[in-house]
Design a protein around this nucleic acid. Structure first.
Lengths: 123, 123
DNA sequence: CGGTATCCCTTCTGATACTG
DNA sequence: CAGTATCAGAAGGGATACCG
């Protein structure tokens, strides 16, 4: 019996998949999600927690994450105006993946370093 | 007994982690790794398999993946000159993660779409 | 075949200043 | 407090031409 269709679970990488990953695994999102997983935070709390981020980038990151349903933006009250950001249920599922990614980088970093040295010294 | 150190498995996100993820989960790497997981491929085979990629980007992607130990570059012979790219053992561990990422995007895409619609129509 | 080198243009990022 | 607006510099990616 010939196997015409091999049992690959080959998940097709469409532009949609790429776009979502880009919007959600970018430079700042990991840090922001990590913070929000520990506790809901205010805008300036996040700024202080991630000192190198600029206002602009933080705003952009939060809007993007909010738009994709990863965080909830809650306007707590007015005078002077307080906004709280919370991780959503969807965002928590993402956090599990991020943990897996970070676990992978931690585990493979030594071997990656060796590969880089081999590559660089040979070139 | 006070818990001075909470039991968070909070993996710290260092610049090193970010850099590695950036180099390995970028726009083209997922496609390239996916192809190489199915079978070793020559340079122009990859170009044909990923039609929208340019020579420049494919070269850069392959060099980066090779430098990080994710793929092996094998010069098969000379005249006219053949080069084969293969996924490495390290690259295979990455592929598992990529599959998890793609599975996540597939699973959550519907809810993400709904979140986007809510966000966009409300704005 | 399997690249490298160059130009160019768009995108991303950061710094700074201002607002409800 | 929680942003928006504007601008300049750096970086990324495509198109084209050429090389071992």
């Amino acid at each position: 019996m010939p196997e015409t269709t091999p049992p690959q679970p080959t998940t097709q990488i469409t532009a949609q998949h790429r776009e979502l990953l880009d919007q959600v695994l970018d430079k700042w999102s990991l840090q922001v999600l990590d913070r929000l997983c520990e506790s809901p935070s205010r805008f300036n709390e996040l700024r202080r927690a991630i000192p190198v981020i600029t206002q602009k980038s933080l705003t952009a990151t939060l809007r993007r994450l909010e738009r994709n349903g990863m965080v909830d933006r809650v306007v707590v009250n007015t005078r002077p105006l307080a906004v709280e950001y919370r991780i959503s249920a969807l965002g928590k599922t993402l956090q599990d993946l991020i943990d897996a990614l970070l676990g992978w980088t931690t585990a493979t970093m030594p071997e990656v370093e060796r590969a880089r040295e081999r590559f660089d010294e040979h070139a």
